[in-house]
Structures are given as structure tokens and as C-alpha cells.
């Protein structure tokens, strides 16, 4: 039990289980899963599905934070990718009245992802070549990116009627949401990538001890570029899922404040913001905790005007639970003589 409690993922897991139990108490059918129309349905599936974009963004963010960087532009990149894809698919109809795509779907998705990756590369160049502080470098795109997206759409919300576009955000594959498959795929790929490839080894070495990596001949700048580019790419994937899910692209609100949720997810998962050892699994748990929190607030029927306050209070409680210092303090108060026994 003690060794289990020392595992890096113990507290994030415990937090998630606790949140789910709280929900189950208030809503006994919360944990129920049903099979309908060839798909799995239930609150849990819903949480997983909704958490998918955050998971994807947070996975990219984890690597950036691991090499002691930060990317606060991911929300804006989500908006850009969503807008580009929606523009290229278009809101038009063909002559027979059926929804049609202006450009092939693969081209729209590919272009959106390419531009998202280019955004990431831009961030990387500012950090590596121009020597800017990561938070400042990515602040530029955070502010400007949403503006660019609004410029592209003339400030309008683009609605997409072309049904194949909906698959990413609301389709199902083998009974599970497509978005969940994408997130899971990305996670597994990244897990293998970071443990089995040279780039992965370098990312972990730089995160663990940048100076030692430099002395060993690892060139940090190229690796940082790769990592920022990937973070942009993953934000692009999330942007596609989000816009596909709502069947439209809103340059103003797509991915709003997503960067903060992503940073929170990474932190909840046990990766320090100062870099170093990171945990992809922890990040996935962190994203699930955040989405469960949101769902909990809805299922408890909290009035909309106090939602933010309740969420803040819950985040506060979760962070306290995860703080080793706070737990030690509680233990001292609860069992004052435990130390001397």
C-alpha cells in the first residue's frame, strides 16, 4: 500500500476516482454504460469523448514543458486550425441540395494540420533562434493567432454542413468515439516515441539535465524546434475535433482558455512546470480530471452564474490533495505524534 502511494500516478488516479465516486453518490446511474445503436453510451464515455481534445493538446504541452518551455498559444492555434479546415470545406451545397465540400476533405484537414504545425514551428523559432522567453514568445501567437483566425472568417462563425466532416468530433468506431481513438492513438504513439527513439531520449535528457545533455553533444535547439512544432500540430488536431464536434468554426471562442486547462492538466499529472521528469499517462489523467470536474458541475446542477467559482474551488481542492507539503501538514495535524512514534 505504501509503495503504491509513492507511485507517481497514485494521487492523480486517486483524485479521478474520488471525483467519479462523488458523481456516483449524487447520481447512482452515473457510472452506468449502455449499448445502443452499436455504440457505447454513458457519462463515462461522454467524459472521455469531451476530454479528448484537451488530452491531445496537453500531450503536446507535456513535451514542451518537459524541455523547460511553455506554449500558451495552443488555444489560438486550435482556433486557426478549426477556421482553416471549415473555410476549405466550406458551408456550401451542391446543385441537388446535398451538402458538399469545396475542397476534398483530406486537403482541408491536411492544410489545417500543416498550418498548425507551422504555428508551432514559429513559436519554436522565436524561442530557439530569437532567444525569447517561451511564455513571451508564445504570447505573441496567443494574441495574434485568434486575430488571424477572425480575419480569415471576417469575424463570422462558419457553419459546416458537409456530413463527413462530423466524423472526427462525433463519429464512432468499434463502439467508441472517434475522438477518443485519436487521443488514444496519439498517446500510445507518443509513449513509444519518447521511450524508443533518439529524439525521445534527447527530450528526456534535456528535460532531466540540459547542461549534461549539452556536454554529451546533444543539440538542444533542433530538438526544441521539433517539440514546439509537435505541440502546434497537436493543437491543430484538437482544433479539428472541436470544430467537427460543434459542426462549425468560431474564431472567437474555439479553444478559448484551452492553454490554461492544458497547463493545469500537465501539472495535475505530476509534471513540474520547471521541466524534467514528465509523465504522459499523468497528463492524460490530468485532462480526465479536468473534464470530470466540468461534467460534475453540470450534473450537480450548479447554476451557470456560480459555475466558475465552483470550478475554482474544486481545482483548489484537487491541487491541495496533490500537494505533498499539504498532505504532510494534514498528517501532522491529524497524527501529531506520528513522527516520534
Amino acid at each position: 500500500m505504501k509503495r503504491l502511494a509513492q507511485h507517481a500516478l497514485f494521487w492523480p488516479s486517486a483524485t479521478l476516482v474520488l471525483l467519479l465516486l462523488v458523481n456516483a453518490v449524487f447520481n447512482p446511474s452515473f457510472l452506468a454504460l449502455t449499448w445502443r445503436d452499436g455504440h457505447l453510451f454513458g457519462n463515462l464515455i461522454d467524459i472521455l469523448n469531451r476530454a479528448a481534445p484537451l488530452m491531445i493538446v496537453s500531450l503536446g504541452m507535456t513535451l514542451v514543458i518537459a524541455i523547460r518551455g511553455l506554449d500558451i498559444s495552443v488555444g489560438a492555434v486550435v482556433a486557426i486550425a478549426a477556421t482553416v479546415a471549415a473555410l476549405l470545406v466550406g458551408g456550401g451545397f451542391s446543385a441537388d441540395g446535398a451538402a458538399a465540400s469545396e475542397h476534398p476533405l483530406w486537403m482541408a484537414l491536411g492544410a489545417a494540420l500543416l498550418i498548425a504545425a507551422a504555428c508551432g514551428l514559429w513559436n519554436g523559432l522565436l524561442v530557439v533562434k530569437a532567444g525569447m522567453q517561451p511564455i513571451v514568445a508564445t504570447l505573441i501567437l496567443m494574441v495574434a493567432g485568434r486575430g488571424v483566425a477572425q480575419l480569415l472568417t471576417d469575424g463570422q462563425i462558419i457553419t459546416v454542413y458537409y456530413a463527413p466532416y462530423y466524423v472526427l468530433g462525433s463519429g464512432f468506431l468499434l463502439g467508441l468515439p472517434v475522438a477518443l481513438w485519436i487521443a488514444a492513438l496519439l498517446w500510445v504513439a507518443l509513449q513509444l516515441f519518447t521511450t524508443r527513439t533518439a529524439l525521445g531520449l534527447f527530450i528526456r535528457a534535456i528535460g532531466g539535465n540540459p547542461e549534461a545533455a549539452r556536454v554529451a553533444g546533444v543539440r538542444a535547439s533542433g530538438i526544441a524546434l521539433c517539440v514546439y512544432t509537435f505541440c502546434g500540430f497537436s493543437a491543430g488536431v484538437a482544433g479539428l475535433i472541436i470544430s467537427s464536434n460543434v459542426k462549425s468554426a468560431d474564431a472567437n471562442s474555439a479553444g478559448q482558455l484551452l492553454e490554461l486547462d492544458a497547463i493545469l492538466a500537465v501539472t495535475l499529472g505530476g509534471t513540474a512546470l520547471t521541466g524534467g521528469r514528465f509523465s504522459l499517462a499523468g497528463t492524460v489523467l490530468g485532462a480526465l480530471i479536468i473534464q470530470t470536474l466540468t461534467s460534475t458541475i453540470y450534473s450537480l446542477g450548479v447554476p451557470p452564474e456560480v459555475t466558475l467559482v465552483v470550478k475554482a474551488a474544486l481545482v483548489f481542492a484537487v491541487m491541495l490533495l496533490q500537494s505533498a507539503e499539504f498532505r504532510a501538514l494534514v498528517m501532522r495535524v491529524v497524527r501529531p505524534r506520528a513522527g516520534t512514534a
Binding site: R204, A205, G208
Partner: peptide, 16 residues
């Protein structure tokens, strides 16, 4: 400070 990456295994420190 400049040599080991403490949290990585001996194997990865050697091949770095």
C-alpha cells in the same frame, strides 16, 4: 551538474 541525467537509467546515460 554537467554529467549525469539523474533520473534516467544507467543504460540511457551510457548511450547518450
Amino acid at each position: 551538474q554537467d554529467g549525469i541525467v539523474a533520473e534516467l537509467p544507467v543504460r540511457e546515460n551510457i548511450v547518450l
